[in-house]
Amino acid sequence: MQQTLLTPCPSALPPLTDGTGGDVALTMTAWASQYHSCATRHNGLIEALEDRQ
């Protein structure tokens, strides 16, 4: 099993710093990136476990 599949998802998201439109856009982009990375690992782990059955 790939070691990267066993990496836990971050427990905290980057905070908004000043609430301006640009800050909100950058922060939401960071959140989306973090979610995608975690979802990719989670789905990969599920597939790897299903393949072992």
Rank of each mutant, 00 (worst) to 15 (best):
G19D: 11
T29L: 11
L16G: 02
L6Y: 12
A39C: 09
H36S: 13
L49W: 02
A39Y: 04
D51I: 05
P8W: 05
T4V: 12
T20L: 00
A39N: 10
Q34S: 12
T29C: 01
R52K: 15
C38Q: 00
Y35C: 11
L6M: 14
P15Q: 05
T40L: 05
D51M: 11
D23E: 11
H42F: 10
E50W: 03
E47T: 15
W31L: 14
H42T: 10
P8K: 05
Q34Y: 08
I46L: 13
R52Q: 14
L13Q: 08
G44M: 02
W31Q: 10
E50H: 06
T29Q: 08
H42R: 10
A12D: 15
Q53S: 13
C9R: 07
A48R: 11
Q2C: 13
T27G: 01
Q53Y: 09
R52E: 12
L5R: 02
M1C: 12
V24T: 10
A32E: 15
E47S: 15
D51V: 06
P15S: 05
A12I: 09
L26G: 09
S33D: 14
R41W: 04
Q53R: 13
M1N: 11
T27P: 00
A32S: 15
A48Y: 06
T27V: 10
C38D: 00
Y35T: 11
R52G: 06
D51G: 10
D51R: 15
G44H: 03
N43I: 09
P14T: 05
E50S: 07
G22H: 09
S11K: 15
R41N: 02
L5I: 06
G44I: 04
Q34G: 11
L16K: 00
E47V: 13
D18F: 00
Q34F: 06
H42L: 09
P8I: 03
M1F: 14
L5A: 08
T20F: 01
E47L: 14
D23M: 04
A12C: 08
M1E: 13
